[in-house]
Design a protein around this nucleic acid. Sequence first.
DNA 1: AGTCACCGAGAACGTTCGTTCTCGCTTTGT
DNA 2: ACAAAGCGAGAACGAACGTTCTCGGTGACT
Lengths: 184, 184
Amino acid sequence: MAEQEPTRQRVLDAAGELFYSRGIQTVGMDAVRNASGVPLKRLYALFPSKDALVLEFLRQRDAQWLRALAGHVDAQPTPEERITAVFDWLYAWFSEPGYRGCAFINSFGELGAVSPQVAEQARHHKQAFHAYLTDLVEAAGRPAELAGRLALLAEGAIVTAALFATPEPARQARDAAHALLHTP
Amino acid sequence: MAEQEPTRQRVLDAAGELFYSRGIQTVGMDAVRNASGVPLKRLYALFPSKDALVLEFLRQRDAQWLRALAGHVDAQPTPEERITAVFDWLYAWFSEPGYRGCAFINSFGELGAVSPQVAEQARHHKQAFHAYLTDLVEAAGRPAELAGRLALLAEGAIVTAALFATPEPARQARDAAHALLHTP
DNA sequence: AGTCACCGAGAACGTTCGTTCTCGCTTTGT
DNA sequence: ACAAAGCGAGAACGAACGTTCTCGGTGACT
């Protein structure tokens, strides 16, 4: 019984890795079974359906992603440094092997039109990111509209870095953010 | 024989509309048949496979999209106005009913990991967009790195507008572009 | 008018996928 | 030691999909 949570997490990790790297519809439950080593019967005892597994993956990814970002950003001493640290963290993220963009943007493109819950998760995630940027901008004493502009730069970098498989867009976004910061 | 091209276009239009609004994998060939009114036999005479139909859709979308953008932008008198016109055109695009983001970003998220040809089409499209922006920036006598920044703003706006079903990000991106333009 | 090639409508085929079921083994409780 | 319950491995099932085939009718050519 204390062992159930670990296998649930093992399933989520394996499924998440597959969903992220290959796309959701491309990954069958058999692939999740093979990757996690958890038999189908147990999979369906832990998650009532593939849809539920997908949604739980998105929920977890949302929390993990924001925690990782904040973990790096909040370590910076000054508010200005925290803002540019967002883009430095993006650079590191884009440089990870297997980086394939934002799981929420990808899921939305794949299933947003057909699954309101996936669309809602994506909106929730981006809203949380925007709220986080808003806090950073406010703490820096900058005008509120800066947050939206930084968000656009970040989203653009996320997408472009995925398409061209290079972390370079993070640098461009950081430079652009720097320009926006230093010239009201 | 002179009638073959119209039905080919009818298929592409119907399939494109479906692929864009629902996602590619969600749309079966039967749906394309129903929407276009072209029987399956003829569909497969025109396109050897669904993959070929998808790729042809992307090729056409690439050309149409850039032509529509340039059609609006190139009508502006001054280089600076042409640059901000890009974002005005985005605003109009985001406001169209059924707007669901960039077909290439969506296809890449859905199939980029599994279809090198889809990934290549997406890269080609974004490269063309970037090249177009580079021309605009150069014509305005601005530093070359501005093009990349504008592209990031545009991509971010495209994605954000789709997620939240609002054209507002185009305005934010335009304001940010304006700020970048007027403060080197 | 008759023959023949063509074509639309949809059935059929083979595969894949989500989900459930079967079966045999292991483990547990007494 | 033995019965009963649980579980892993994979077969099985029903639906959906991409692709091909069949059939009945229609139009063209002679």
